[in-house]
Design a protein around this nucleic acid. Structure first.
Length: 258
DNA sequence: CAGCTTGTTAGGTT
DNA sequence: TAACCTAACAAGCT
């Protein structure tokens, strides 16, 4: 689930729920989501501080406190919710931050594929993000196109490689390729200049319209609205959609349009 | 029980 | 080096 638009939504949850508020209590209900930090150290580092700001890079979310920074990654099933402190925790609420008076920010994750890190200083933040390419919403056309030229793998794999451009996942990559009319199995370094142009333009357009929704919206006019239907057809030309496997992920595309 | 899932990464091979 | 594949991680669902 969580790709760039989802994580941007979680950033907004963090801001509206917790920004500027004092962290009164940190409750780790499942330490299995903590990486490189104990529940005890997390509490000790955060309780009494404030959440001062929230930044997103790709699929990473950084919660600033003026001291250590909490880095969150949501894997496939993670999310951030704001609740009242008396609301019963959901079964997969793993870490609860009670902030200000009467609010609780909750890291919820069914599968625990990623989780929370505590970066003690800016160097530690940089280490966590060291392998991330430029954010998909911030990268300029020139850098994006140059990155594609430098890669020989299939364009689908390249788009979802976080070290090339950060924030695109399986659904977004398929959606962008379909809109740009590029075959997912095409090799990145064999694309025409025009292909690269369209990919950049459609990446921007797709992200801009997905971000306010907080996810890749399964609209009828989008490819994403059809990938889970029993016998999906292309919403643009009506051809049956193809389903194949690239880079170990299910890839949905239209042989007619792409 | 087998197979599937929107993410990442280590390890092995090409 | 780069690219590619698989397994592994965890916890569901069909």
């Amino acid at each position: 689930m969580p790709e760039l638009p989802d994580v941007e939504g979680f950033r907004e949850v963090l801001v509206s729920c917790a920004q500027g508020r004092v962290i009164r209590h940190v409750e780790v209900r499942d330490a299995g989501v903590l990486h490189g930090v104990s529940a005890r150290r997390l509490r000790e580092a955060l309780e009494g501080r404030r959440f001062t700001g929230a930044e997103r890079h790709g699929k990473w979310l950084l919660a600033r406190t003026g001291g250590p920074t909490v880095a969150l990654h949501f894997g496939m099933t993670g999310l951030l919710v704001c609740a009242g402190p008396d609301e019963e925790a959901a079964p997969h609420d793993r870490v609860l931050f009670t902030v200000g008076t009467g609010r609780q920010l909750r890291y919820r994750d069914q599968r625990k594929l990623q989780g929370l890190w505590l970066a003690e200083d800016e160097t530690a933040v940089e280490r966590l993000l060291a392998r991330q390419g430029p954010d998909a919403l911030a990268v300029d056309r020139e850098r994006f196109e140059a990155a594609l030229c430098a890669r020989r793998g299939t364009i689908k794999t390249v788009l979802t490689d976080q070290s090339v451009v950060a924030g695109l996942g399986n659904l977004l990559a398929d959606e962008i390729l379909w809109r740009a009319r590029v075959r997912p199995a095409a090799h990145a370094n064999e694309l025409t200049e025009d292909d690269r142009r369209r990919l950049y333009t459609q990446m921007r357009r797709t992200l801009r319209s997905a971000v306010p929704t907080g996810r890749v919206p399964p609209r009828d006019s989008w490819l994403t609205g059809h990938r889970d239907t029993p016998s999906p057809h292309c919403p643009r030309c009506g051809e049956p959609l193809r389903r194949s496997r690239l880079g170990g992920r299910t890839t949905v595309w239209c042989a007619q349009c792409q």
